[in-house]
């Protein structure tokens, strides 16, 4: 019995040591798939977009084998915490609230958010100005928290995916949708019938809700992985890979100041 216990303890100690010294040769990355231009599913069923290309470029830089896992947005952090994957590359803003649950790498881009409405409609963006208006937003996004806190009188409709919110704006079920600007352009304005909609109101970058940019989320207490990602971000920024990917999707500097 004692012998058995000793063996088990030794095995446990060995595997524990193994975990802490994990070299991250294989990384599972959670991505979204319904948030163009950052991620979407092509007609042939493959993942594509800025986030996807960045994830792949980082993996190449880290010389790690990566598996991309598509996951609905509102289950993203729970899935990371329950080890369905090891990192999230899905345009996740670095906010204080999320930092309580997960760690973030340095930012890999930063853009502002804005409201989008049907052309010809006027809105007053003061705190009470949107009372009774229907605002469509992606559930659990920074924009969700922003409108929930700032427009308590508005009727907020929450969607599992950004694309569904745009669908309901087109259908007239919501008056406004808020999202980050490139997402509005790619997901709505540049699509068929998108010329009937326009961005309105202030550019919103409020640090309290939108944090310090978009980073890669990883589980707490994985400093090695974080270090690896940070180095890789710096490396692709320096060697032109980031620039090349950015030029594929945007005609401005998305990394931000």
């Amino acid at each position: 019995m004692k012998k058995l216990l000793a063996v088990i303890t030794a095995a446990a100690a060995f595997s524990a040591a193994n975990v802490s010294a994990k070299e991250w040769n294989e990384i599972r990355i959670g991505v979204e798939g319904a948030y163009p231009p950052y991620s979407w599913i092509t007609p042939s069923g493959e993942l594509a977009g800025f986030d996807i290309d960045i994830a792949n470029a980082l993996c190449e830089e880290m010389q790690a084998k990566c598996k991309l896992v598509a996951q609905d947005w509102d289950g993203m952090i729970p899935a990371l915490m329950t080890r369905k994957f090891d990192a999230i590359v899905a345009s996740m803003s670095i906010t204080e609230e999320r930092k309580q649950k997960v760690d973030f790498t340095d930012k890999y881009y930063q853009v502002a958010s804005r409201f989008v409405v049907k052309k010809g409609q006027d809105f007053d963006f003061s705190a009470a100005g949107l009372d009774g208006k229907k605002i469509g937003v992606q559930r659990a996004s920074t924009q969700d928290k922003y409108v929930t806190a700032n427009f308590p009188g508005a009727e907020i409709k929450r969607y599992g995916a950004q694309d569904d919110a745009f669908l309901d704006l087109k259908a007239g079920r919501v008056d406004l949708v808020i999202s980050n600007i490139p997402a509005v352009k790619k997901g709505l304005l540049e699509k068929d019938g998108g010329d009937r909609y326009q961005l309105v109101g202030p550019m919103i970058t409020d640090r309290e809700w939108f944090g310090e940019g978009v980073g890669i989320a990883i589980r707490k207490n994985s400093p090695t992985l974080r270090e690896k990602f940070n180095n890789a971000i710096q490396a692709i920024r320096a060697n032109g890979v980031y620039q090349r990917i950015q030029d594929k999707y945007f005609d401005f500097d998305i990394y931000g100041g």
Binding site: D74, K101, R139, A140, D144, R158, G160, D168
Partner: peptide
């Protein structure tokens, strides 16, 4: 799923706010 806040909708909001599935 279509934005109604029924029992499951409430659970999804709470989950997305506090990450406590």
């Amino acid at each position: 799923i279509i934005t109604l806040v029924d029992i499951t909708g409430a659970a999804r909001i709470v989950n997305s706010r506090f990450y406590n599935p």
